[in-house]
Amino acid sequence: MSDVREERDDDIEAVRQMLTAAFESDAEARLVDALRSTHAWMPEFSVVAEENGEVVAFALLSRIMIGGETGLALGPVAVLPDRQKQGLGAEVIKDALRRATEAGERLVLVLGDPAYYKRFGFVPAAPFGIISDWSSAGDAWQVLALNKVKARYPSPWRNL
């Protein structure tokens, strides 16, 4: 059983090493390092799974803008190569999304495998008119609504 929790300062190097091991390059590790020093970094949404004192999985939600509204980007998500296919990635994703929902966040975008991310409720973003540099990825460009958004109609509508 893993302990899923917010990343601590003493996890930073372990997260960096895990990201480098989990991906073909150090690009994701460099991305996380760069985000740490920006307004997009939200430490409460940097989640790790730890087992026997070792960080084995990681998920990050960072601040983005969607139109004129704030939102979150999910990624990177990583699991140590020898621990993959054991549900650890799902654990850290679910915990990060739970934290964001409880904090009142509204939307999360992700670029990833639709077959994997649909289990969390993600759907293709293009039908909602959400575009970015990754829109050309087709259905891999996905969105998840975390909290309801109330539509407000002008008073004449209430007279119907």
Rank of each mutant, 00 (worst) to 15 (best):
L97A: 05
Y117D: 00
V108Y: 01
S135P: 00
E44M: 13
A57T: 07
L144D: 02
V56G: 07
P124N: 04
V149A: 15
W41A: 02
V79T: 15
V92T: 03
R36V: 06
G112T: 03
K118P: 01
I130H: 01
D9F: 08
R98F: 09
A140L: 01
D9Q: 09
V47M: 14
R36D: 07
L31P: 08
A27T: 13
Q86M: 14
V79D: 06
A21G: 05
V123P: 05
D139E: 04
A57H: 12
V110D: 00
D133N: 01
K150Y: 11
L74A: 05
I64A: 04
Y153P: 10
Y153T: 15
A22I: 09
A90M: 10
Q84H: 08
R99W: 03
V55Y: 04
V108S: 03
E69T: 13
V149G: 14
D10A: 06
P154V: 07
E6S: 15
P124F: 04
Q84W: 03
R63T: 08
R83D: 11
R106N: 09
H39W: 14
R158T: 15
A73M: 06
R158H: 13
G129Q: 08
L160W: 09
A125M: 01
N159E: 12
T101Q: 12
V143T: 01
Y153E: 13
R83N: 12
A40Y: 05
V48A: 11
